[in-house]
Design a protein around this nucleic acid. Sequence first.
DNA 1: GACAAAGCGGAACGATGTTCCGGATAGTAA
DNA 2: TTACTATCCGGAACATCGTTCCGCTTTGTC
Lengths: 197, 197
Amino acid sequence: MSSENSTGRVSARSKRADALRNQQALLAAAAEVFVASGVDAPIRQIAAKAGVGTGTIYRHFPTRADLVTAVFRHQIEECAEAGSVLLAAADSPFIALRQWIDLFVDFLVTKHGLADAMQSDSSGFAALHRYFLDRLLPVCARLLDAAVEAGEIRAGTHPYELMRGIGNLCIGGGDPQYDPRRLVELLLCGLQRHPSE
Amino acid sequence: MSSENSTGRVSARSKRADALRNQQALLAAAAEVFVASGVDAPIRQIAAKAGVGTGTIYRHFPTRADLVTAVFRHQIEECAEAGSVLLAAADSPFIALRQWIDLFVDFLVTKHGLADAMQSDSSGFAALHRYFLDRLLPVCARLLDAAVEAGEIRAGTHPYELMRGIGNLCIGGGDPQYDPRRLVELLLCGLQRHPSE
DNA sequence: GACAAAGCGGAACGATGTTCCGGATAGTAA
DNA sequence: TTACTATCCGGAACATCGTTCCGCTTTGTC
């Protein structure tokens, strides 16, 4: 079914066997290197671990960011799909929102430097950024809307701003003195409707 | 009075006239280039604008971060000093805290990419990061303590975490769809004591 | 088994931060 | 004024990136 290549999706059609093997090897190697050295690890290191030349990487993933996107794609997908599930299962929309944000934060924090790389507009990570937004923004928006409608949080918060803010807060999670989760929690508190005011 | 060089302080003793001239020219050029192209601007560009060679930069500022630190040093100082003034003048410690944070945010947002560069532990901006902390952390801590003591905000917030979080939120301020100030405001709301709970 | 298309490897390119060193220069002493 | 030296300067050179390019290899097919 369909190629839809260059960003890491299925692509099972009309490719040579060795090409497919290399693509898989690259994805596996990249995943390994990313957890070991962060998403800023040199391309050459990934190529070496996969046992291929640097040119081969660019044949499969036109740019560094495309490789990163491909590696994390299914995890992003899982996070997106969790949105509906949580909204249906939780006792209230706000609880669902909080749980979903927990998931989102976990995802960002456990990947070394993913949040760092995604926000800084340099390094051409725009593709990853866009994919993140395309997939997760609607989910976040739906959860926010539901919580607003339930009267649990104040209206007027832009989903994009919230997601970006949370993403930013997750930068530098390696520091033991800095726990992004506490600040995200603070943000959520600020989001809630206050009786006074 | 003392040299105390390599980070941009006074250093008026025992230096050749041309060396001093170049250092001044570099600071001026760097300041200009930073506002034009952000703090990530290439060293060579700054050297060219100052009319010196790249080696000359490293003679005066051992590393890129030292140059950045030197350029912004007096502004950081101003921000630090504003803390006491605001605390003495404002109607309440929380108001002072909010005003001070406004100042802090303004500082970060108006320098293109300053916040970006400072947080990411790569690029060896550790020196800048430390200077920021050394100078501003005590101020933030004092404001926080005062607000806690006045019963305006919840206790238990670590000053370092708060400053770092705010710094993180200021990353990517160039995006018209993302206003760090709104999120910082949300954070402050979350900090306030809630009647319920 | 031959052959074209697809794919591969790694040298090469351009950009970056940083180091190095031969030569210029400022300050000083005669 | 003229030497002389410690200091400083300029930019070539080095290491490390991401990325591109191209001659050679491999694969699938007839």
